[in-house]
Amino acid sequence: MKNVNIGFIPLTDSAPLIIAKEQGFFEKQGLNVRLQREVSWSNIRDKLIFGEVDAAHMLAPMLMAITLGVGGLKKHLVTGYSFGLNGNAVGVSNILFNEMQQYDPDLLLKPQKSAHVLKKIIQMRSSNKQEPLKFAVVFPFSMHHYLLRHWLKSSGLDANREVQIVVVPPSSVVKALEEKLIDGYCVGEPWSTHAVKCGTAVTLITGYEIWNNAPEKVLGVTKQWADENKIIHKKLIVALYQASEWIDQADHKEQLIKYLAQPDYVGAPEASISNAIDGEIYHPDTQYCRKVPNFSVPFKYLANFPWQSHAEWILQQMKESNQIDDNIDIQKTAESIYLTDLYRETISSQGVMLPNVNHKKDGFHTQPWVLEGVELGADCFI
């Protein structure tokens, strides 16, 4: 048995790690995996860089930032596995929601118009010389950050100028709302649902509705570790793929929720986790409870395929956010971090059919579509 330490953040999309451990998929690959629950993404980053963990459940943009040495230490990271698609949501405090409802009483039924309503509030606050609204994201280099910016941009808002974006760990969002430190957030599940169930927030729009089937977390390792542990790396990918397939089966849902709710794992209430898995966007007034298909996608639509085109989109957002220089070679950087060929080689050996390309065009498909005989999901932007 090979010992492997893996760090993770208590989020619903850490499920493949938990299931691979609890259901024996790691063990079947000859791996003795120790899962380390961390409190913040900076902890994850530092422990991976300094070798305290061998691999980590990571925000996809973190790999680009760390590899390029942006915002801290520089270390070449790579990934050969994606934990899934979607799973984020944008919410606001009850106070801000009540203000927004004055402009549109049916706001919750029009998620795509939510940023336009927010714009009216922001313009009003600006004319009254009030402080800008504060929106929390989980890390500066995160899909949460870029989806939030894209949502704001859809109404013509400038995230650099008209709002203040701050960092709050996912599990601390409720406390930040209670203490009125933030006015809104973009966070991963189950913490958005939990904030609403605690009576501190209202969900306006899901990540899926901002970008259909957007990438999220990946399995991050250093390039050095990947080069020195090629067989173990492949075994990790196989075990996580099998765990994701297990998660996707409806009759495993009840057991999945019980695993995730354990204090050593996600540690959120089972009801909140269940809502998140089912894509039920909860609101205290049940007439507004709505279902979002594909709110969180752990397996179908090649959810575990590390598309280099996803990495390129993230790098482009980093440029637009002034986080990286304009002279960064996006394609070359994406190819050096996203080991798509490794994933294809590893999973194809399990008898799974995969496309022979590393890129796909996003933003053109309103419905599921087929690429080289494999079904992919819709990929439109708001």
Rank of each mutant, 00 (worst) to 15 (best):
V4Y: 00
V4T: 01
I9E: 01
P10E: 10
P10L: 08
D13E: 12
D13S: 08
I19K: 01
G30P: 09
V39T: 14
S40D: 04
S40L: 02
W41L: 07
S42K: 14
N43I: 07
I49D: 00
V53P: 01
D54F: 01
A56R: 00
A56H: 01
M58T: 13
L59W: 01
T67N: 07
V70A: 15
V70N: 07
G72N: 07
G72C: 06
K74W: 09
V78K: 00
V78E: 00
S82D: 07
G87F: 00
N88S: 14
V92L: 08
I95H: 13
I95W: 10
M100I: 11
M100N: 13
M100W: 08
Q101K: 15
L107A: 13
A115S: 15
A115F: 02
V117G: 09
L118T: 14
I121K: 06
M124G: 12
M124F: 12
M124H: 14
R125P: 06
S126N: 13
S126T: 13
S127W: 11
N128S: 13
Q130A: 13
L133R: 11
L133G: 10
A136Q: 02
V138A: 08
H144N: 14
H144M: 06
Y146N: 02
L147Y: 00
L152D: 04
D158S: 14
N160F: 14
E162G: 09
V163L: 04
I165L: 03
V166Q: 05
V168F: 01
S172Q: 14
V173D: 03
A176L: 02
L177T: 08
L177M: 09
C186Y: 04
W191E: 03
V196H: 08
T200D: 07
V202S: 15
L204I: 12
L204P: 13
G207Q: 04
W211Q: 12
V218W: 00
L219Q: 03
L219S: 02
G220K: 01
V221N: 00
T222V: 03
A226I: 05
A226T: 05
K230R: 15
K234I: 07
L236T: 03
V238Y: 00
Y241F: 15
E245A: 14
W246E: 09
D248Y: 14
D248S: 15
H252L: 06
K258F: 07
Y265T: 08
G267T: 10
S272L: 07
I273C: 02
I273R: 02
I277N: 00
E280T: 12
I281D: 03
I281W: 02
H283S: 12
D285L: 06
T286F: 12
K291I: 09
V292E: 06
F295L: 10
K300Y: 09
A303S: 10
A311C: 11
Q316N: 14
I324W: 03
D325L: 11
I328L: 09
K332V: 11
A334T: 02
Y338N: 01
L339S: 04
I347W: 00
G351P: 04
P355I: 04
H359S: 12
D362L: 10
F364K: 14
P368D: 11
P368V: 12
E372M: 12
E375W: 12
L376A: 08
L376D: 02
